[in-house]
């Protein structure tokens, strides 16, 4: 009996002491960690918008340059990041996300100011198979999107990912060999966001 009480008391004391030891750095370092997470997101947006950034810029520098040239705006269900230079829109970034093969995929699509042409794309979060689906994050795949239109000639919204070697229309790109499933998922999530962009664009025109 006495033994059990001692064991319980020891466990309680050890747990409490460790919790306090952990609470101190957790509270003290929280602002740094938050700034880093924010900067991480900002780095992706700046990158896809084509804003020139120093290679070894600190978190604070990234946040500063983000605040000075990028304007965030909500349009319906979309949040847009507008890259402004001397009052003129240079490019617009739109976040997209969706399920991949192994886990969620997140990225940003960078568009021309009229929201009709793709300027660039990033996939900053994905868990696809390295060497196969994981290739979506490589520059050689992301480059394929540049200059593509958001809809086909007949006006159907969406990017289509076609088998390698097939002839391409303005809204089509070549898939990655061996990553058909990932490419299909990417096509679905991009088409969904493009559909929303198109709706927003039409609303604005009205």
């Amino acid at each position: 009996m006495k033994n059990n009480v001692y064991t319980l008391v020891f466990a309680a004391v050890l747990g409490t002491v460790c919790a306090i030891v952990l609470a101190v750095p957790s509270v003290m370092l929280e602002p740094y960690r938050r700034a880093n997470m924010e900067a991480d997101k900002v780095r992706n947006i700046l990158g896809v918008l084509g804003v020139p950034v120093e290679k070894n810029a600190s978190s604070q520098q990234l946040l500063d340059s983000f605040r000075s040239v990028v304007k965030e705006e909500k349009r319906g269900t979309l949040s847009l990041y507008r890259y402004l230079q001397d009052g003129e829109t240079m490019a617009v970034a739109v976040p997209f996300s969706g399920p991949g093969v192994w886990g969620p995929v997140e990225g940003f699509l960078s568009l021309s100011p009229d929201l009709r042409t793709i300027r660039g794309i990033t996939f900053h979060k994905h868990e696809e198979t390295p060497g196969l689906g994981g290739e979506i994050a490589t520059e050689s795949f992301r480059k394929r999107f540049i200059g593509k239109t958001l809809e086909s000639v007949s006006g159907k919204a969406g990017i289509r990912i076609r088998p390698p070697g097939s002839p391409l229309a303005d809204n089509e790109i070549h898939a990655i060999t061996g990553a058909t499933m990932t490419c299909n998922k990417v096509e679905v999530m991009l088409t969904a966001v493009i559909q929303r962009i198109k709706e927003e664009r039409n609303e604005n025109v009205k």
Binding site: S26, L29, Y32, N36, D40, S59
Partner: peptide, 8 residues
């Protein structure tokens, strides 16, 4: 935590 704060 230290790594996350200073060496992100």
């Amino acid at each position: 935590q230290i790594l996350k704060a200073f060496y992100w």
